[in-house]
């Protein structure tokens, strides 16, 4: 089993009515619940809108990173999967696609020396 980081871009819940929102959150509960049961869930949280970008050796600080909310990272999860393909299959089950999301899946690289 390897660890994979899922980076969610978009996935805004703002447009949902309260009822839709509750339904949506219930699906998250079910999904994370079943992942946990299979030992595939390792953590992760949604992220706030306010952000700073620190760049370069000079550590220039800007508000940011993107004005376009579609491209903003809205949250992350860490899951366990055998390989990138099965991580992709797992991600397809994620309720976040109900709210139009783009997910980047990256293997967590172990810095072994």
């Amino acid at each position: 089993m390897k660890d994979y980081l899922l980076l969610f871009r978009g996935g805004e819940m703002q447009g949902l009515s309260e009822e839709e929102r509750n339904k949506h959150l219930a699906k998250w509960g079910q999904w994370i619940g079943s992942l946990s049961k299979e030992g595939k869930f390792a953590g992760g949280d949604p992220l706030g809108v306010e952000a700073r970008v620190i760049s370069g050796k000079k550590m220039a600080v800007t508000d940011g990173p993107y004005a376009e909310s579609k491209e903003m990272v809205g949250g992350y999860l860490i899951i366990k999967a055998a390989d990138l393909n099965s991580a992709t299959e797992i991600t397809k089950e994620c309720p976040i696609y109900e709210v139009d999301d783009v997910t980047e899946i990256r293997e967590i690289h172990h810095m072994d020396f």
Binding site: G29, I32, F41, G43, D45, P46, L77
Partner: peptide, 18 residues
């Protein structure tokens, strides 16, 4: 029963509310 849902902000407060 719900300990796994308390570990992530994706599900924490919805689970408590529930």
């Amino acid at each position: 029963d719900i300990s796994h849902l308390l570990k992530s902000e994706w599900t924490l407060s919805a689970s408590v509310n529930n």
